[in-house]
Design a protein around this nucleic acid. Sequence first.
DNA 1: CTTATACTGAGATTGAATCTCATTATTATC
DNA 2: GATAATAATGAGATTCAATCTCAGTATAAG
Lengths: 145, 145
Amino acid sequence: MTPTSTEETGTWAESARERISEAGLRRSTPRQRVVDLLDQQDCAITALEIDARLDRVGRATVYRAIEQLEELGLVRKVDLGGSAFGYEKVEPSGHHHHHIVCDECGKVEPFEDDALEEAIHEIHRKGFKLESHEVTLHGHCSDCD
Amino acid sequence: MTPTSTEETGTWAESARERISEAGLRRSTPRQRVVDLLDQQDCAITALEIDARLDRVGRATVYRAIEQLEELGLVRKVDLGGSAFGYEKVEPSGHHHHHIVCDECGKVEPFEDDALEEAIHEIHRKGFKLESHEVTLHGHCSDCD
DNA sequence: CTTATACTGAGATTGAATCTCATTATTATC
DNA sequence: GATAATAATGAGATTCAATCTCAGTATAAG
Ligand SMILES: [Zn+2]
Ligand SMILES: [Zn+2]
Ligand SMILES: [Zn+2]
Ligand SMILES: [Zn+2]
């Protein structure tokens, strides 16, 4: 019974492929490989991690691909407290999570909270058209108390 | 009627001075100058901006002072989308704000929202002792629509 | 004042991110 | 399938925020 585990996989990658073509960008192999690797992750990954995992794909290409995906709203940049930023896919459904970070050891855990989302959704600011948000909770994990 | 505008000024700088001594750190002039400059700001300022505004204070000292103030919980690091991080004082009262950023031009505006704070306050995560949080809203300002 | 040592700052170094540009791959047209 | 136009690539150079080094200095205790 493996089909269940794969039926939702590819949803983001597919929409990403569509949007890339719609934007007039070519479907090059290196870019596809970045998309596929991001698709496999459940949470954020750094640009240099992507670069390290993709042999034969240049650093510049990885950064350029991320930048384009970000502009297309397909990828979100997140500050996880470390020295580099993380990037994670943006589901077309709008479903997403935020992060809890241990300031001591750097451990990151994703979390979801409906009341939080509702509170954020209610915020309106004159002179600003809000499009996304980032929430990071900081603290200490049980290993670091 | 100027007294009203200054009566609350200095509260943070004072508590910072106390905490610095309590922590066994010396009250050196360069560190005091960093504290005073941070005290004057209503929102975040980058380390290099502090360095640029303080002649005769070295870059290393600025970064070290910020690091120590951060560890003492007197300063908060915020990602404002630019190339460098911003730092702002943490009021002893707990009163604070979050940020709205224009992804187009980089403009940053502080905002406060009680319902949001309440929602965050209700979040509990097993295995984590939460201590602070960062919220950033992204969008486009009226100049960039 | 003297001593012990925390602190400082100019400059070197690191490392994530960006840029350059000659070469290659993709797409449209024939 | 071949051809032309050009978007995309990647090795290496470059930028710049942030960190590190270490000899000299300032601070605070006695
Ligand atoms: Zn995540
Ligand atoms: Zn959310
Ligand atoms: Zn602020
Ligand atoms: Zn808050």
